[in-house]
Design a protein around this nucleic acid. Structure first.
Lengths: 209, 209
DNA sequence: GTCTATATTAGGATAGAC
DNA sequence: GTCTATCCTAATATAGAC
């Protein structure tokens, strides 16, 4: 019988409310209401709503840095790659409130801007590592200019797929399926794969639908 | 000497403030302040802030429907296509406040959701028309499954490129360059072009950098 | 650690004079 | 059409008792 600390309950509940309703629409009152605690109690644990957001961001940042620490000079298989994408989309989906109203959130929590940009950079770097690994293994053929464009496109998609997907299902906002995002990312790379790899990649990607 | 009506000045100023600061961060007081009119005056012309947003949206919608009315069964050249993309990005950039905090904005102005989704659908349809036209002209080779994925990707990019781009320049938020977006969109299609068309397409796309 | 009660403020909006 | 003054509400946050 592990009793979850109130502080953590606040974080968990805030996260899920932020995700489903959008951070700006979630008041401290709503959070405490949902938890059946008093607003005063919430403010005992956190000095402000911004502190909650910030702490959630830090958790997100830690997860991402961990995930994006893709080793260079290592041969990556297609399966590893799609698994990586899967984990990535899952992490983004779990903190999707950040992306859903990104400009708004970052403008109100300025301290997070630089750190968010750094995550973005790391994302692009990770994609580049993967592509270069595939290229070394002769699984991918791509020119420099295309590679740059592709990596940017992958980063964009990794960020906004879940927000874009939510748009299409604005009615039921509870769940987001990361699968379709993985599929889409794989298909961005497919044209640059060697012919035999292409079929394999398509096969893998279909599993995510 | 054409004296611009206050009502229109309110719309114009609101649009540019929304774009640069984000709609949620713009108060009615700020708008009237910027225009050197009283808040009361603003409310003489618009019953609410929401009405301003809605009217701007209607203008955006009209522009988009106009632009997206791509005729089927007409041969489209590469130049026409890139010009179309150019106009599209320009329009989106001019109303980028809608996209920057899409989920937030749409959640507060529920009446716009369905209409926004319709624009999205039309966008995808327009891209499909273009691709099918290029395919008929043997300029593009693509299977059905890839086509679906590509059109979705084009729609996603058309929506979020400017928001994504803003992220990279969160410091100076005044101007957005649509060119890079066109470049990116072209490069999404390049892999599916016939070999000789590819070079032409890359050439065109570079002009937009 | 938790509660109740309350202060503070900001933003949206209205009333009524000019 | 425009202004000034004011109201209303919702949201953040604090104080102090238990």
């Amino acid at each position: 019988m592990t009793k979850v600390k109130t502080r953590d309950r606040i974080l968990n509940t805030s996260l899920s409310l932020f995700n489903s309703l959008g951070e700006p629409n979630v008041t401290t009152l709503l959070i405490s209401d949902e938890l059946d605690i008093s607003p005063g109690n919430l403010y005992y644990h956190f000095r402000s709503k911004g502190d909650i957001v910030e702490e959630l961001f830090i958790a997100f940042e830690a997860e991402m840095q961990d995930l994006l620490a893709v080793p260079e000079d290592v041969d990556i298989s297609l399966d590893q790659q799609s698994f990586f994408l899967h984990l990535l989309f899952e992490a983004v989906a779990r903190y999707r409130f950040l992306y859903q109203d990104l400009v708004n959130v970052l403008s109100r929590y300025e301290r997070l801007q630089a750190r968010f940009k750094r995550i973005l950079k790391n994302k692009t770097r990770a994609f580049r590592s993967i592509c270069e690994s595939l290229r070394r293994q002769n699984m991918m053929q791509i020119e420099q200019e295309e590679l740059d464009s592709l990596c940017e496109q992958l980063t964009l998609t990794a960020c906004y797929w879940s927000a874009f997907d939510t748009l299409s299902h604005l009615d039921d906002r509870e769940s987001v399926d990361p699968g379709r995002g993985v599929y889409q990312m794989m298909h961005l790379m497919v044209p640059y794969f060697a012919t035999d790899v292409q079929e394999h990649a398509k096969l893998i990607s279909r599993d995510y639908l």
